[in-house]
Design a protein around this nucleic acid. Structure first.
Lengths: 246, 246
DNA sequence: GAGGCGAACTTGTCTGAACAAGTTGGCCTC
DNA sequence: GAGGCCAACTTGTTCAGACAAGTTCGCCTC
């Protein structure tokens, strides 16, 4: 938290949180904030841009900024891994590997991980929970070049992401997620403790390094009674994309 | 498309699209792009910031930017309404009102729309489709102050959003969406043409004006075989938020 | 060959200024 | 009172420069 614009963004977030700026009220003008914090207008703009992208405030040319919401849903920054997310919410992440084996990469594996078909990849089936209650079923495929580092990790390791960072310095930098809904199959139902055909929230994701090299891809299935996703958008600026079936 | 930084962003997007900058390759340095386009470094930074937030390129201090993906999923800007989204994909949005009636606002309506309980609000049940095939079931509640403008709209109007803009100048400026999965009920199944208990992707959303005043809230259920959502994230910058059940 | 060091490069942060473009509200007219 | 117009205000865009912080890669040493 070195950067001044981040400090200012944080102060504004807190001020909104404690309703110093109520929902529906107007934020002070940029120039006011600039003099108040003793920085230039550009720095203030960086700060409020962050809040805007978080959906906390609305912004349009000519009019003062409006406070749209106060309840920011638990630390938007750095909710990358399941474990980090759980910790940020004050809950304990648990995990258990149900099955783990090497298989030659199929066509889908090869495409998503940018490998040649037939390359041995590591399939891991993992159940994850919050405070012990199963919430998520992860079917992950790791690329061959990282598989050796994943294999020896204890089955009940709470954060594989953290572990790989510590052991190998690997950073899960970028992720692409496709979200849809599926009915629980027999295995899903048993491991998550729900009835078969229960609706599950499915997130298929590919994670890459800083260089854009795919590390893993995964089919994650969440119990829909336990977890939901929230997204906000504004006109002309939209992080979410609807996609039709291919 | 007046702003220079938007033009540059667009040129870069197209260049990535036609693989002038291949996935995994490095983008030219900011200073290079600045001289190439004859603008200052700040303007280039605005352009690449847009691509970064779209997930097309990755960025970190000290290293050149990396191209992460090329296939940008159909116009990120302005996919606000169902009709606009359909049009951007080259498909025709259809719509049909199944039921429409005034009811006094319940507690949930009152909270979400910031009205007093008992205020008459307009409930509309609408089936929407792509090229005639039903894809989405919308259960929308409109605030009292806009209901009078919604009521007379023809049942098969393709874009209610556009219609309200034309008639009343109302802009749906901001939206907050919560995504989860539910099983299709009897009515859902019949209207969407799926079996009962089929998994549906549910999006509960509240739409507001520029001032943050809630206009409508809606329970939208998508056929999960027809539509999915995609989100990308990067370390320390995340538009998506996982939420646990309340 | 392995490792450490440092220079060159690149992105991040910040300033101060100027003008463009959109909104708001008061004043004036009819 | 209704409507139109204008001035003040506010955000958006762009520039040029400076320094900080992180990465990369070649060179040198051991």
């Amino acid at each position: 938290m070195a950067a001044r614009h981040e400090e200012i963004a944080d102060e504004l977030r807190r001020a909104i949180d404690r309703e110093e700026y109520a929902v529906g009220a107007l934020l002070p003008a940029e120039t006011d904030l600039a003099t108040r914090y003793g920085v230039s207008r550009g720095t203030v703009r960086q700060a409020v841009a962050a809040l805007t992208s978080e959906g906390l405030i609305g912004s349009r040319q000519g009019a003062r900024r409006v406070v749209l919401a106060s309840r920011r849903s638990q630390s938007f920054a750095e909710l990358r891994s399941f474990a980090q997310w759980a910790r940020a919410m004050g809950r304990a992440a648990t995990g258990r590997v149900v099955a783990q084996e090497y298989r030659p990469a199929g066509t889908e594996d090869a495409v998503r991980l940018q490998l040649r078909a037939g390359t041995p990849v590591l399939h891991v089936l993992r159940v994850r929970g919050l405070d012990g209650e199963p919430v998520l079923l992860e079917r992950t495929v790791y690329a061959d070049w990282i598989a050796a580092a994943v294999e020896p990790i204890e089955p009940d390791c709470a954060s594989v992401t953290q572990r790989l960072l510590d052991d190998t310095g690997l950073v899960f930098a970028y992720g692409e997620h496709v979200i849809d809904a599926v009915a629980a199959g027999a295995q899903d139902a048993e491991l998550l403790g729900v009835r078969r055909t229960s609706p599950l929230l499915r997130v298929r994701r590919v994670t890459t390094t800083y260089e854009g090299r795919p590390v893993e891809w995964s089919d994650d299935r969440y119990r829909s009674d336990a977890v939901s996703f929230s997204v906000h958008n504004s006109i002309g600026n939209n992080a979410l994309a609807r996609k039709t079936a291919e």
